[in-house]
């Protein structure tokens, strides 16, 4: 059904990002959760509007990318725009943060040795 070049949208990606190919912040990786902090205002770029509406509940960057049908890099540029203007917040999934709270490896090693000795 989709012939190449026929059914995609007329706007090119560089007009979506206004010529940038690099996100201004490193806050986003694929699984960063994004939550919108305010509603869309009229006159906003339509991608921004869609992101804000999509991220009313925490949504991963990769999901936003799939929903908008845009490459992740482009989505990260759009997200960092929104982050810079304070319309969204981003946080990393809990697991990444909790890695610091794991028992330290010495203790684990001792447990392992203990188990082997049983």
């Amino acid at each position: 059904m989709t012939r190449p070049g026929r059914d995609d949208d007329p706007d090119r990606l560089y007009t979506v990002t206004r010529g940038r190919s690099r996100a201004s912040s490193d806050a986003f990786d694929l699984v960063t959760l994004v939550v919108s902090e305010s509603d869309a205002t009229p006159g906003m770029q339509s991608e921004h509007t869609r992101i804000l509406r999509l991220c009313q509940y925490p949504t991963a960057v990769v999901e936003v990318s799939a929903e908008l049908k845009l490459p992740v890099t482009v989505v990260r540029i759009l997200l960092s725009d929104l982050l810079d203007s304070g319309l969204i917040t981003a946080r990393h999934p809990q697991t990444a943060g909790s890695a610091a709270h794991l028992p330290d490896s010495n203790l684990l090693e001792q447990v392992l040795v203990g188990l082997r000795n049983l």
Binding site: D8, Y14, S21, R22, V72, T73, V74
Partner: peptide, 20 residues
């Protein structure tokens, strides 16, 4: 159309910049 497809395929920022 091919360029758009490539833009979707290559996540690297430098490559994307060149493609754009």
């Amino acid at each position: 159309a091919e360029l758009r497809e490539m833009e979707h395929r290559h996540g690297d920022e430098d490559v994307l910049g060149d493609l754009l």
